[in-house]
């Protein structure tokens, strides 16, 4: 679709606004894996309430939009359970070991010119590119 980039840019601005509110309001870095992971492993117990509120907003607002418009975006997600479990484990373990994901290292890290954020983003993008190259283009399994 030709309009994809406009939706991408507009949606991206909202993502950045969310990060700006979280930073200027609460003084916190908006990293999805850190907010969720810290809640799960107990390392974020001291500010669990704001973590739960943030996640509540992330999950519930799209739900309410889908409910009120009667339309949810197509996710085209795989139905291969083994791929979903393997990918989920890798994402969960990897983001916690690296201490960040696309939002924390990518959006929040790059925007403050953090060397770690820039390096992490380069590495996980390259790993993703390699995964697609091998598993889709060479082996044709995903």
């Amino acid at each position: 679709m030709e309009a994809d980039w406009i939706w991408g840019l507009g949606g991206g601005l909202l993502i950045g606004l969310g990060g700006a509110v979280f930073l200027l309001g609460n003084g916190r870095i908006m990293g999805a894996s850190g907010i969720l992971g810290g809640l799960l492993d107990g390392s974020g117990r001291s500010n669990a309430a704001e973590r739960i509120a943030f996640i509540g907003g992330v999950v519930l607002v799209p739900f309410l939009i889908a409910l009120s418009t009667g339309h949810a975006p197509d996710t085209r997600v795989t139905s291969n359970a083994a791929v979903l479990i393997g990918a989920g484990l890798l994402v969960g373990i990897g983001t916690r070991i690296a201490n960040g994901c696309t939002s924390g290292h990518g959006v929040c890290g790059i925007s403050r010119l953090s060397l770690r954020g820039i390096a992490a983003t380069a590495v996980f993008m390259l790993a993703g590119i390699l995964t697609l190259a091998v598993l889709r283009q060479i082996l044709g399994v995903i």
Binding site: L90, G94, R96, A127
Partner: peptide, 24 residues
Amino acid sequence: RLVLGSVLFGAGWGLAGLCPGPAM
């Protein structure tokens, strides 16, 4: 940690096309 973790994360991200934010 930063490098190894990001390699694992990137592989999983490519595998299913989902990262933590969009998954939520």
